[in-house]
Design a binder for these strands. Structure first.
Lengths: 234, 234, 234, 234
DNA sequence: CATGAATGAGAATTCATTCAT
DNA sequence: AATGAATGAATTCTCATTCAT
C-alpha cells in the first residue's frame, strides 16, 4: 500500500514521440529498462513522490515538470533521465494505484447481514480510505487525465472493472434484489467520490463518523444489513 | 458539485500589451454584458455550445480556444468579443449548471419507505441523470478546473452545500439511523460518480436498469425502504 | 526559376508529430492548406527567403528557427503559423528545387558533336549554374538533411532519377560507347559538386572559364565532341 | 575534399563548470595524447569505429555522443577520457582520411591517350572507390561539418588543393585544351559525388560497370583518350 | 580505467491574447 | 460584427559535459 511498495515494475516505457530522426533508432531515450542502481532508484522515488505532491496541489494538466523537479530537488535533465515525460511518470503512479486497488478489491470477505458483516465491511472501507489518503492525488489526477481517447480510458475501464468485479461477487452473494454489477459500480462511485469531496473540499468529516455512516448505508442498502434505528443493531 | 476547496490558475499567460484606459479597471472583460442583438446572441450560443463539445472531448485544461472557435466556425477575434477568456466562458456554463442543480435539489419531495417514496426517488434520480446527460461536460470540467485555490472552489462548495442541504433534510426526515449530512454527501457522491463512470468508463448501462438499481440502493440504504426480494416491494 | 516562382503549392503539410492528445484531432495545426491572403503570402515568402539565407550560412542542422525568424523579422510564433517546423519549411523549398531541376533536365536539346552541340550544352550548363546560384543553399542542405532513413532519401532519389533520366536520353542518342545512365549520373555529379566547390570553397572561378571548361569536358567525354587542341574546334 | 570555406560551430554547449588549473590552458582536452596501453588503444579504436557507424547512419550533426557510446558499448564518461568532444574525435578520423587522400592523389601515374593510360586511370579510380567505400561516412560528414567558419574549411581547402593539385599536373600533361586546374576540380567533383550518389541515393551500380564508364568519360574528356565506339579502343 | 548519474544551457513548440483591416 | 495575422511568454525536451564512486 505504501508508495515504496511499487515493487519490480521499472518503467515499461511510453512510446516516445517525436522521432527527430536521431533518436528514432535509439529506441526511446529516458528511463525504460535501464537497470538502476541504488542511487538511481532513490532518485526515481524522489521524482515519483514529488509528482504526487504536485499533482495533489495542481492536478495533472497544470502540473509542470518544473514543479516536480523543484520539489524533488533535482534538475530538469534528471527528470528526463527517468521518464519520457509527465505522462510517462504518471503512468507509473497509476500502475501502482491500479495494482493496489485490484488487490484491495479482492480483500473484501463475505459480508453477511449481521454485525460480523458490518464489521468486515467497515474494516474494508477503512482500508479504502487509507488507500485514498495515500493515493488520492493520483486517483484524482487520473480522472483529469482521462479525457479524450488516450489509453487512460482503457486503464481506467480495466481497473474499474477489476475493482467492481470483486465487489459484485460479494454483493450478488448477499443481495438478490439488485443488479450486482450496477450496484458494485454505485458502491465504488460512492466511496471514491465521497473521499474526493472529503479531501478536496472543506468537508473533512471525522473518520469514524464517516466510516460509520458509509458502512451503514452500504450494509443496509447493498448487503441486507439491518436498518439502524428500526432494527437497532447495537 | 464535483468541485473541491481549491481552484485553478495555471499558465497565467502574460496579458501581453496595454490595457486601454477604461478597460484597465475592469480587468479586461471585453464583451459579456453588452446588449446583444439577434446575431450576437446566436454567435454567443454557438460558442457556448462549441465549448461544451470541446470540454466534453478534451476536458477543461486541454481545451483550446482554438478548438472551440473551430467547432463554432468562428474566428479567434470573435471569441474575445464575447468572452474575456476561456475561464470566462466556462463561468457562464457553470452558472447555468449551478442553477439547474440547485433547483433540482429542491425538487425532491418527501421520500417515504413505501412504494410512493420509491417512485418519487426514482423520478428524481431520472431528472438528475437527464441533467448529467446534458451538462455532463461542464460538471466534469468543473471538477477538473477546481484544483489549486481559485474561486471555482468557492462556487463548488456553495453549490454542493446547497445541493446536499436539500437532500439532507429529506434523509433526516426519513432515517434517524445515519448522520444525514454525511449521508447526503454520500448520496450525491454516488449518483454523480456513477453517471461519470457510465459515460467515461464506457459502461453505458441501460437507463432503466441503472435507475432501478440506484433507486433501490438509495431507498433501502437511506430512506428506510423495504429490502427488495425479502420484503418484496412490488 | 526565381524563388517567387514557387507557384501554387501552399504547403502540403508534414505529418505533425507529438499528438499531445489535444491537437490529435486538430489534424495538424500550422500552415497546411489555410487559404492565405496577401499578407499571409508575403509573410510566408519572407520566411522561405530568410530560411535560404540561414541554411546557406549554417546548413540545415545548425540552422535555428530563431535565426530564420530573426532574418525574416518576424516572431517565433509566426513561424509556426506557417510551418510545422524547420523540416516542414525545408520541404517546401526542396519541392521548389525539385521542380526546377526536373524542368531544367527536360530543357536540354539534342547535343551533337559539332559546334552547335557545344553551344547548346554550354547554354544549358549556364542555366544549371544560375539555378545553383539561386538554390545552392537548398541543394547543399538537402544532402545534409538526407542522412538517416527519412523521406529525404526518397525525394532525393526521385529527383536525381528524374534529372538524370532526361540527360541519359540525350547521352544515349549521342554516344553509344558508354552506359548512358551511369554517364548521366556522373554528369550530374560533376556539375553539382563543381558548383558546390565553387560556391562553398574559396575557389570562385570565373564563370566563363568554368563554363568553357566544363562544357568542353562534357562535350568531349560524353557527347563525342571534338577534342579541343587536337581537333581544334575554334 | 567535400569541404567548403566555412566551418561548423553551432550550439556551443556551455562548458558547464570549472576548468581545473592545468587543463584550463589546454582548452579542455582530456585524453588524446596520453600514452595508451593495449586496452586503452582498443577502447579508442572501438570509439572511432563506432563513430564511423554513427556518422554513416546520421551524419555529423545528428550524431549523438550517446549513440557513439552505445555502439561502442562503453560509457559516456569513457568517451571523454579519450576525446575532448565529438569534434575532437571527428578530427582524428578526418586526419586519417586526409592522409589517405593525399597519398592517393600522388599515386596517379602518367595517363596517356592509349590503352595503358586507360588502365592506369581505371586502376586509380578503383582505388578511389575503395577509399570511398571505407571512409565514405567521414567524407560525407566532413562536408556537413564544414559550414560556417571553423577550421574544417581550412582543412578541406588544403586537402582538396593537395588532391586536385596532383591531378591537375597529370591533366595538364595530357590535355592542352582545358584549364587543368578547373578540370581537376571537375574530375574530383565527379568521382566524389558519383560515389556519394551511389551509396546515398540507392543507385548501387555494379562496380565494374561504374568503373568502366567513369574511366571512359574521364579518359576521353580529360586525357585525350580515344572515343569509344568510334575509335574502338579494345 | 570505467561507469552511471546529474546538470543546465539551449532549442523547439504551444497557445492565450491583441490588433489592423 | 467579424476575421486573419502576429506576438511572445511559458513550457517541454535534448544532449554535451562533468563528477563521484
Amino acid at each position: 500500500m505504501s508508495v515504496s511498495g511499487r515493487g519490480a515494475s521499472p518503467r515499461k516505457r511510453a512510446p516516445a514521440k517525436k522521432a527527430t530522426g536521431a533518436n528514432a533508432a535509439r529506441g526511446g531515450v529516458p528511463a525504460q529498462e535501464r537497470e538502476l542502481r541504488a542511487q538511481g532508484k532513490k532518485t526515481m522515488r524522489k521524482l515519483l513522490d514529488a509528482a504526487m505532491v504536485v499533482f495533489d496541489k495542481r492536478g495533472f494538466h497544470a502540473a509542470r515538470v518544473d514543479d516536480i523537479v523543484k520539489v524533488a530537488k533535482t534538475s530538469h535533465g534528471t527528470f528526463y533521465l527517468y521518464f519520457a515525460n509527465k505522462e510517462d511518470l504518471f503512468r507509473a503512479l497509476v500502475a501502482d494505484v491500479a495494482e493496489e486497488m485490484t488487490s484491495l478489491a479482492n480483500a473484501l470477505g463475505d459480508v453477511g447481514p449481521d454485525e460480523a458483516g458490518f464489521l468486515e465491511l467497515r474494516a474494508w472501507l477503512g482500508r479504502f480510505c487509507d488507500l485514498y489518503d495515500h493515493y488520492g492525488p493520483v486517483i484524482r489526477a487520473w480522472a483529469e487525465a482521462d479525457v479524450d481517447d488516450s489509453d487512460w480510458g482503457r486503464m481506467g475501464t480495466e481497473t474499474t472493472r477489476a475493482f467492481t468485479g470483486g465487489l459484485a461477487r460479494r454483493i450478488a452473494a448477499a443481495n438478490k434484489g439488485v443488479d450486482a454489477e450496477i450496484a458494485a459500480v454505485a458502491f465504488v462511485a460512492m466511496i471514491e467520490r465521497f473521499n474526493y469531496y472529503n479531501v478536496s473540499r472543506g468537508l473533512r468529516y471525522d473518520r469514524d463518523a464517516m466510516l460509520e455512516t458509509l458502512t451503514t448505508i452500504v450494509h443496509t442498502g447493498l448487503f441486507g444489513g439491518a436498518r439502524p434505528g428500526k432494527d437497532a443493531r447495537r
